[in-house]
Amino acid sequence: MRKTTLLFLFAFTAIVAVAQQKKTSGNPIFPGWYADPDAAVFGSDYWIYPTFSAVYEKQTFLDAFSSKDLVNWKKHDKVLDTVNVKWAKKAVWAPAIVKKDAAYYLFFGANDIQNDNEIGGIGVAVSKSPSGPFKDHIGKPLVDKFHNGAQPIDQFVFKDKDGQYYLIYGGWSHCNIAKLSNDFKSLVPFKDGVTFKEITPEGYVEGPYMFIRNGKYYFMWSEGGWTGPDYSVAYAVADSPMGPFKRIGKILKQDPKIATGAGHHSIIHNEKKDAWYIVYHRRPISETHGNNRATCIDEMVFDENGLIQPIVITNEGVKAQKVN
């Protein structure tokens, strides 16, 4: 047998051995600068859709990552590209994914508009597959103006118990909730005729997220400045997606020994195991540049009263866990 063949077999065996030894995800969970991760479970796969963390002019696409066990992740390049969204030019941020019927809808912010005269805001793209390609769903932004002081960014789509889908979004320390139409092409006014209702809790800055547990609505958001070490996640609990939301406290923040700037998160709930995970970005302690953010995952635990315990951020990440 040739020497080169032996060397190849040796290297391959070593790689397999390392892969087999990997017991936890490690943090970050995949290489590259990625932020604002939105996580979902589709079938037997976990999916994460993050922001490509770079200068605004280079944020013209979104990648996605899938895994069957939370440990080994596969990259899906450019599931969304501004080539398929003519009005989006830069600053494609904070994707939010949802499956409805046989289609997948990817909500995103673009262009970082600073006033109502600029083109941009929150868009919607659609695909028949979670891996894309996603194409513009309505040919224009779904939200392209400031309402109640909220910059149209950092969108999250929430499905209520009655099947109604809501858009929850907002930067500049204001958060709105709005009803989505059945086809996700428009917003539907509430019974009182108002389309955008403000639900901003104390301390809110950006990055809203909502889920239901034991009949209660948990509303989470990011606080602090995204480029600084004080970036963090806080939450509130209410009996309705409309609130009122009274701030309970922070549950995710930096650990100067591990990483800083921990924030802008999403949640994975493995219903079969009733296991909860928080997916978020943070800045390695070796990095100071604002865009040098990496996607990580750690366990989320509730106490006997349903309160979220402070997250322990780790370098190890989480153990392997299949969806089914």
Rank of each mutant, 00 (worst) to 15 (best):
I153P: 01
D183V: 12
V188A: 11
L187P: 09
P189M: 10
P201L: 08
Y204I: 09
K250N: 15
W172S: 13
V157E: 02
I212V: 15
G225T: 15
V188D: 04
W172E: 10
Q155E: 14
W221D: 06
A234I: 02
I251E: 01
I248R: 13
R213W: 00
E202I: 02
K250R: 15
G215Q: 13
Y204E: 10
K250H: 12
Y231L: 10
A259P: 02
G203Q: 08
N214R: 11
L252K: 09
R213N: 12
D255C: 08
G215C: 14
E223Y: 03
F146V: 04
P256S: 14
V237N: 07
Y235N: 11
P152G: 14
Y165V: 01
F245K: 03
V205L: 02
W172G: 02
G193F: 01
G171H: 05
A178M: 01
I212Y: 05
A234W: 00
M242D: 11
E202T: 07
F146Y: 14
D183S: 13
F184C: 05
L187G: 10
V237R: 05
I177D: 06
N176Y: 02
G171M: 03
V188K: 10
E206H: 06
M210L: 10
F245V: 10
G163C: 08
Q155C: 14
N176E: 07
Y209K: 00
Q164H: 04
I168R: 00
P201W: 06
S181V: 09
N214I: 00
K179D: 11
K253M: 14
G170S: 11
P256D: 15
P208A: 05
G207E: 00
V237S: 07
K185N: 08
V157A: 12
Y166V: 03
G261L: 04
V237C: 06
I251L: 13
Q164L: 02
T227N: 11
Y217R: 05
N176F: 03
P256K: 14
M210E: 03
G243R: 08
W226I: 14
K161I: 12
G170A: 08
G149R: 04
Y235D: 10
G263E: 08
P241S: 12
D160V: 09
K197F: 03
L180N: 04
E198M: 07
A236Y: 01
G243S: 13
T260H: 08
G203N: 07
K197M: 03
A238M: 09
L180W: 01
H147M: 07
Q164F: 03
A150R: 07
T200N: 01
I199D: 02
K253E: 15
K185W: 04
M242T: 08
G263A: 13
M220T: 15
I248H: 13
C175M: 15
E223V: 09
A150W: 00
